[in-house]
Design a protein around this nucleic acid. Structure first.
Lengths: 205, 205
DNA sequence: CGGTATATATAGCGGTCACTACACAAACTC
DNA sequence: GAGTTTGTGTAGTGACCGCTATATATACCG
């Protein structure tokens, strides 16, 4: 169980037949599949089989494959995988939070149960579906903006390019993890990037 | 014209009918398409249409879609896009060559005519075809080993992790470029990474 | 010229893609 | 109970996937 906000049935529910599967659980499963192999490589047939539901139920619940991907992205950003949000929780200044974010990436991005890297950064990479690409791009922009706004508190003059610096580094770690890099490979990178970031943060530039 | 090694027809050629299209040109076109949208997103039908050839000619010439991808990867590694080889040409020590490599990545990775990033690093990202993934992985390993062997001349004790550092940084730049980052975004990253690399190179670690 | 070898074009193979029409089953209101 | 609403299962849509069987056109050899 990763989330506890399951939508409770109202006192007087809708009239018709009730759903035969857990929606949150289904989104979790889909998120894992999309994360492991990328949007295009996971078919609706496989999703249905894995979730234990047939196509009509699938489309009644999610509207489309891209609709499910959108929910998966939301779930991803709202959960443990949002490493920046996780790094923020422990407080501290920009340098400390960014260092913690990079460290978390080095520890969480390596492959585990077939899943590696970041769903937002690489989930729709090379996808032929414009809708999936747009959803992915929006999620990336949101993440980058959160980073930028946080950095701006200490360095408003350089928030944009410092955010870019971190984002590019994380994209590299995600790609490397998807190519098989382990924590022992990513950690030195993350530490070097953290030091470089601190120098940039406290430079006069 | 990017290559000049066109295979010349022998004095006495094969007996049958001659090919009606230029093979090198076809590989170039396919390379561009694979690079622009990724392996899976480019279909054999589109390749045939773009190359001006029909399926039977396609398979007679390349064996399979993956066979053409392999040729495209070879062409890519043998041409201008091999930025490490290009950086090596001008000579210099490890620090200078790596700095030049990263600078070239920052200048060549941003989108141009629909093509962005590195074909080797991202051409088969999220592909569902095991053959394309294997070809891509082999090309990545070859590139990384070339980097590592070069670095080993000055720092044999740290060649592996320094090579990883550069590869992860380049993967980040390629991914960022494919997400729309321009030269003005990649260049500061490349310069900071170059400085960080130099510090690592001349450290006692 | 005949014989042979090679590339071509037409057409279509089996399979998978995301998605849906239709009828039935189940839970509500009254 | 009747009536309404909603989800589910069966089956199948047209389009595209990588790839190929077959026959024909074009070049070489002798």
């Amino acid at each position: 169980m990763t989330t506890t906000h399951k939508s409770e049935a109202p006192a007087t529910g809708p009239r018709g037949r009730r759903r035969s599967f857990d929606l949150d659980e289904a989104v979790d499963t889909a998120m894992r599949l999309f994360h492991a192999r990328g949007y295009d490589a996971v078919g609706v047939a496989e999703l249905g089989a894995e979730l234990g539901i047939k196509p009509p139920s699938f489309y009644a619940a999610f509207g489309s494959k891209a609709g499910l991907f959108e929910r998966a992205l939301q779930r991803y950003a709202a959960g443990e995988a949002n490493i920046f949000a996780k790094a923020l929780e422990e407080g501290g200044g920009v340098a400390a939070v960014i260092a913690r974010t990079l460290d978390l990436a080095a520890r969480l991005y390596p492959e585990r149960n077939g899943v590696a890297g970041c769903l937002v950064l690489d989930g729709a990479r090379n996808s032929a579906d414009p809708e999936a690409c747009a959803l992915s791009a929006a999620a990336k922009t949101a993440s980058r903006n959160a980073l930028r706004d946080f950095i701006a508190a200490e360095r408003p003059d350089r928030a944009e390019d410092l955010a870019d610096f971190v984002v590019i580094a994380m994209a590299g770690m995600s790609a490397a993890a998807r190519d098989g890099a382990g924590e022992s490979t990513l950690k030195p990178f993350a530490e070097t990037i953290s030091r470089a970031f601190q120098r940039e943060l406290s430079s006069e530039g």
